[in-house]
Design a binder for these strands. Structure first.
Lengths: 236, 236
DNA sequence: CGTCAAGTTGAACTAGCTCAACCCCCGTGG
DNA sequence: CCACGGGGGTTGAGCTAGTTCAACTTGACG
């Protein structure tokens, strides 16, 4: 974790449109730049924060993948999301001022740290930022509704199809191929997210391969028939 | 839907501590009162809003129960929450300025309407309100993590136990009995929320009755052994 | 008093789980 | 350079929790 005076990078960051509000003037941009004074690099398996850690601010993913999960005393774990470049992490901590889930790097990653106090402060005089924060939180709520729908009503094939589609769309929005990508998570982690056992995830993968919808080589996924995949997911 | 000049009621509302920030001075309280100019009564089955409706503001439940649910084009429905007095409804609409789920009254209800523009505006000069709004959204995110854990990892008995406990706690926080209450939703609605079929919900109820943990007479539930129920839920 | 929605219960079925064997990388150290 | 060790992945066989379908009961309300 290195610390230096304003990096003045947000204004030139290629993830700008993803994690920042649009329509800021130069002065506002400058003020925002001033907030992101710290970055942090993590390596595979390292925790960005743990359940119970004090909440200090939000994190914007610059590179790499994360997983967030909640766990019970009895050892059950539920992955609640995978975050990639441009995603904002840490919203769970705002309410109680401490984190209520774990977030761990799935590979080498880098995040920008945005101290919450300063965000709250700045948003008072910057309506665009205020609106953006509200938007991010609201969208996270909506995203979770989708996951609940998936967990509550969909069958294994539908779940996996929806998962792959979601990944594809998000990668596409970041300028990557939406039809060919590398999974950053294990079958077990996918299973935990989808409410399935890893064996079921594996079997469902081979089922999708057998029907010619995708090609899979370990973690390398190639979507061959996007339309068919969409039909299978048939539920956002 | 009746409309009259400032009802000046928040300041005297017995749900104050639930839906409003604490620590407001008289002037701030007055400003907040001025926001809630409208209330709305609904009867059983009536929709507060539907998926796609324009987002106008948040709703604070005054009396009665609601359910919110998302649905797919293919007819699948997932209940994402039940709201009772003091709960805030409508956060899903902030991001896109339109609602992305349905919310329907389960019985005769009344809500206070809080126009979003005015809330956003007022929160600029009222840090306590700003923080409160952030808190509400963050807590909703955390709540949904709990539901995801339930849907992804728990078995039928655990789900129902967790559901009943949650209801009991929330009713208790509102001054009602935590051991005896009336369910406002059908078995089917409970099932939709818990990711189970109505028959499974019914069977699980009778299982809990047979083991002496609860007594049930149609929608009337009596928790006989709170400790045992907690053990079964064993996962928040 | 009849009707209809909601709830219960039974019996057969099945999607996904469990357990277990096996394979395939890939990195490490001899 | 090769052997080996171990985490991740696949596949099979049997099992089980929960679903499905269907019959029946209960209770609220006009």
């Amino acid at each position: 974790m290195k610390k230096d005076p304003p990096l003045a990078i947000c204004s030139r960051c290629n993830l700008r449109e993803l994690c920042l509000p649009t329509g800021l003037n130069a002065r506002e941009m400058e003020q925002l730049d001033a907030i992101v004074t710290t970055r942090r690099k993590l390596s595979r398996g390292e925790a960005l924060f743990r359940n119970g850690d004090a909440f200090k601010g939000l994190y914007a993913v610059r590179t790499g993948f994360f997983k967030s999960f909640v766990a019970t005393e009895t050892g059950k774990e539920q992955v609640i999301g995978f975050q990639m470049a441009g995603d904002i992490i840490g919203l769970d901590g705002i309410g109680s001022q401490q984190h209520l889930c774990d977030t761990v790097a799935l590979e080498t990653t880098e995040v920008c740290i945005m101290p919450w106090e300063r965000l709250e402060d700045l948003s008072k005089d910057m309506p665009i930022l205020q609106r953006h924060l509200h938007r991010i939180m609201s969208q996270e709520i909506v995203r979770e509704h989708g996951v609940m729908l998936l967990l509550g009503t969909m069958r294994a094939e539908e779940r996996l199809a929806a998962f792959l589609l979601n990944l594809a769309q998000r990668l596409n929005a970041r300028g990557f191929s939406s039809s060919e990508f590398i999974l950053r998570m294990t079958r077990e982690e996918i299973g935990s997210y989808l409410g399935l056992k890893l064996e079921t995830v594996s079997r469902t993968f081979t089922k999708l391969v057998d029907t010619g919808v995708i090609a899979v080589k370990s973690r390398h996924v190639h979507i061959l028939d996007m339309a068919a995949l969409k039909t299978m997911a048939n539920a956002l």
